[in-house]
Design a protein around this nucleic acid. Structure first.
Lengths: 114, 114
DNA sequence: CGGGGTGGTTACCGTTTTGTGCCCACTTAC
DNA sequence: GTAAGTGGGCACAAAACGGTAACCACCCCG
């Protein structure tokens, strides 16, 4: 980050980040993105894959992520309801950043004295 | 993210991210880190630089970030109280990721139809 | 038919998190 | 003395968030 040190953090900057902060920021979101990135695409599958997440929260996140165009929802024709979510290009980049965040967190933890 | 698709998201993975999620995750945190990365080092300065943040939240974040060793607090000898915060190595890496997150968010917003 | 799977919603309630305002001690300038 | 700036704390109200559980419609199998 280049030290610009303008008077304020611009509104645009705050909002730009905010759109992704809303995603990375709330509980489970990063896990959902990371899971989809790993190929877990169906809601029920995600629910089982991410231990502890509730149906409600999972759906809330999926909807939000879809609204942000970070993932895409597609219904697959079948006799049984079949839905799959996949990452959009932005979603993939986001997943990559989340992964780096996870790695950084891990390294950091390992380096702590306590 | 390589598609491993193990049965579950491991606890370690969830926790590793959690340590940084606690930082990136809560409101204002990213802004504080980004601001410090830009050279805004003093509490009062940060308060003015980040429009809308409250004294309380700012202090809470500074304390949390300090606890996590993402930033360091130093009192500078002066007749007047003079405190400065700066990023630790991890903090700089984190700031870099946050910056990328902001950029990605910005690009993404620009690319949206609506 | 009942039981189980799919995907999804809603109401309710408790906990967390934010935000507001007031307070502290200290120093400097007026 | 008074005002304003430094860094910081606390109590409280307001808002956001999460978790539980019930419920919907649909389809399939036995």
């Amino acid at each position: 980050m280049t030290a610009r040190k303008t008077k304020y953090l611009s509104l645009a900057e705050r909002r730009a980040y905010h759109s992704l902060e809303d995603i990375v920021g709330c509980k489970w979101s990063a896990g959902v993105v990371a899971s989809i990135a790993r190929g877990v695409r169906r809601p029920g599958e995600l629910e089982r894959y991410i231990p502890g997440i509730s149906k409600k929260i999972l759906n809330e996140r999926l909807r939000k992520l879809t609204d942000y165009r970070v993932i895409e929802r597609q219904e697959i024709p079948d006799r049984v309801k079949h839905v799959e979510y996949r990452l959009t290009p932005t979603g993939e980049k986001l997943a990559h950043l989340i992964e780096q965040l996870q790695e950084l967190g891990q390294q950091h933890l390992d380096s702590l004295p306590g």
